[in-house]
């Protein structure tokens, strides 16, 4: 890959994905970003969007951060209707599948696919069962895809950041009651920018030296949840 990789960012309208896209743009990177209102579970629409963005070109990196905002609303599972469960848990899984599937068509051989997820599922969080369910599914979907795409030297990795990073710049965040999550623990490190933390790892994964890292989970949550 050349010195100025093109990054395709597939994300919802707010949260860590949108913030990462903006930061990449601000620093002058070549960025393609899907329309934040795009329904990521609509394969035809996603394919058309990527065709429109990429034309006949390929991209070097894909950053996918597209957990549906409803997944962050804390509620006991017994209080959810089937439609609410679907939106909070299953929509994001479908979106991950379609986004990865369609990204496969535009990512270059040797490219990097990076998913950004919240660190909630290592411990599990009460009243965020849909989110934890979706995140673990997407984590392992990424591993399966990493195995499938390895023959093209495409790496697929997951970066996990603090839960609060998914509320960055979210207009609806004021209306979201986050659960008390002492189970996630206190960060070991002082406050930092989650966007910078993600970008650092995205840049690291783009280097040739990281070509053997695939199917990995890289946690940048300031030591909040330390993997066993």
């Amino acid at each position: 890959m050349g010195p100025s990789p093109t990054t395709l960012v597939i994300t919802t309208r707010s949260g860590i994905g949108a913030s990462v896209a903006k930061r990449l743009q601000d620093r002058g990177d070549a960025i393609l970003q899907t329309d934040p209102s795009l329904d990521l579970t609509d394969a035809g629409a996603v394919a058309a969007s990527l065709r429109s963005l990429c034309g006949s070109n390929t991209v070097d990196r894909v950053v996918l951060a597209a957990i549906d905002p409803s997944a962050f609303r804390a509620a006991p599972i017994t209080s959810l209707s089937e439609a609410e469960w679907d939106q909070a848990a299953e929509y994001s899984m479908r979106a991950a599948f379609i986004a990865l599937q369609q990204a496969h068509a535009v990512v270059a051989d040797g490219g990097r696919v990076i998913l950004v997820l919240p660190t909630v599922v290592t411990t599990g969080v009460a009243e965020l069962v849909p989110l934890c369910t979706a995140v673990e599914a997407i984590r392992v979907m990424a591993k399966a895809v990493a195995r499938r795409w390895g023959a093209r030297s495409i790496t697929v990795n997951t970066i996990e950041v603090e839960l609060s990073a998914f509320m960055l710049g979210d207009d609806d965040a004021d209306g979201v009651v986050m659960p008390a999550v002492p189970v996630l623990g206190q960060p070991a490190l002082p406050p930092s920018s989650a966007v910078d933390d993600v970008l650092g790892l995205v840049d690291m994964l783009a280097t040739p030296a990281a070509g053997a890292i695939t199917g990995a989970l890289l946690v940048a949550d300031r030591g909040t949840v330390m993997q066993p």
């Binding site: 899984m93 411990t123 369910t133 599914a137 984590r139």
Partner: peptide, 9 residues
């Protein structure tokens, strides 16, 4: 995998 996330939460 989804089931394992479900279990923990």
């Amino acid at each position: 995998a989804a089931q394992r996330g479900f279990v923990r939460a």
